[in-house]
Computed example of a mutant assay.
Amino acid sequence: MSVKLIQFVRWLVISTTLMQSTVIGGRETNFRAIFNFGDSNSDTGGLSAAFGQAPPPNGITFFHSPNGRFSDGRLIIDFIAKSFGLPYLNAYLDSVGSNFSHGANFATAGSTVRPQNTTKSQSGYSPISLDVQFQQFRDFKTRSKFVRERGGVFKELLPKEEYFSGALYTFDIGQNDLTAGYKLNFTTEQVKAYIPDVLGQFSRVIKGVHGEGGRTFWIHNTGPLGCLPYMLDRYPMSPAQMDEFGCAKPFNEVAQYFNKRLKESVEKLREELPDAKITYVDVYRVKYRLISHAQKYGMVFNFSFIVVAYLNYENVVK
């Protein structure tokens, strides 16, 4: 094991402890609840609860069996929860054995910001788009208050009312909005053309959560689309369109354009919601560096774990 990798492994351990008390927006915070919105990058069981369990090899590395995640191990959201001393987030749609006292996860694999005009069986995209996730959150918040006031055994399984205003609201979504265009045979320029509408709908949901009392937001940009195997398999590129690490440059350029506009949207939201703390996280740079330097860091750890620790290691949170 190289000295660099040993140092990085050491940082993985240290970062888990440090993140238990994180500084966001200039203030030290220890969250009692997390509410997550997104797609497969942060789905802890939503799509599996609705349409059937994600089959093996999903879950085999850490959980040793399928566990609702479209991953062989844990996701970034799992490590975020762990860093604050909270249990992993149960999916809102998973009613069996779930404890929502520390928050809930509304993400489902295949989700998009904009509702798709296709069924899941037609396109593979989840019908639970971001606007639906927001409505589920609103309903969850209203019903949690009702159940806690009514009393009974279920009240201890739901968040206290004050947790909603003091919670961390995490978002990791948008990747599928880009691939949706390519599945419809859109050109890259046509995909870029509808990104402002996607981000307009995204901003409306952020404002909606703010209207429900949310004040602290953690927003991931999208990763290097051109490095995803399913994109490279479905849409072959010429050698001239590939970068030195085997990623498709046109798809990555679209992802970078999306991220640029997302960051602009976040900056505008900060102006419009001055009492909110909104953190923009450059996941693209982290993932691309890990892909392009896989041998340097060693692909022996769960990818999500590396991303969370590396976000701290390289200080790319802005």
Rank of each mutant, 00 (worst) to 15 (best):
F84L: 03
F171L: 12
T22Y: 07
L184E: 09
H102V: 03
S98L: 12
Y297V: 10
Y313K: 12
R32G: 10
N117A: 15
L262Y: 12
L225G: 01
R270C: 13
L290W: 04
A248Y: 13
G223P: 06
Y310S: 12
P196Y: 06
K145W: 00
A180D: 01
Y288V: 01
M237Q: 15
K260W: 13
Y257E: 00
A104M: 05
D197C: 08
F301Y: 08
E264D: 05
R204D: 04
H102S: 09
E253I: 07
E271C: 04
K277M: 04
S2K: 13
Y313S: 09
G151E: 00
D275P: 08
A91T: 05
T142K: 15
F35M: 04
Q135G: 01
S42C: 14
N259W: 08
Y182P: 01
N302K: 08
R234C: 10
F245Q: 05
F202R: 02
M231W: 07
N67P: 01
G152Q: 06
G166P: 11
L12E: 07
R289H: 14
C227V: 14
M237T: 10
G45W: 06
E267S: 13
H210R: 15
E28Y: 06
F8I: 09
F146P: 01
N302Q: 15
G103R: 11
F301V: 12
Y169K: 06
G214V: 06
E189R: 14
I24W: 03
E189I: 08
S304N: 14
F171S: 04
I6L: 12
R285V: 06
F217H: 14
A109Y: 04
V23K: 15
A49I: 07
K82Q: 14
V254H: 05
F37E: 02
G211I: 09
F8T: 09
V153K: 15
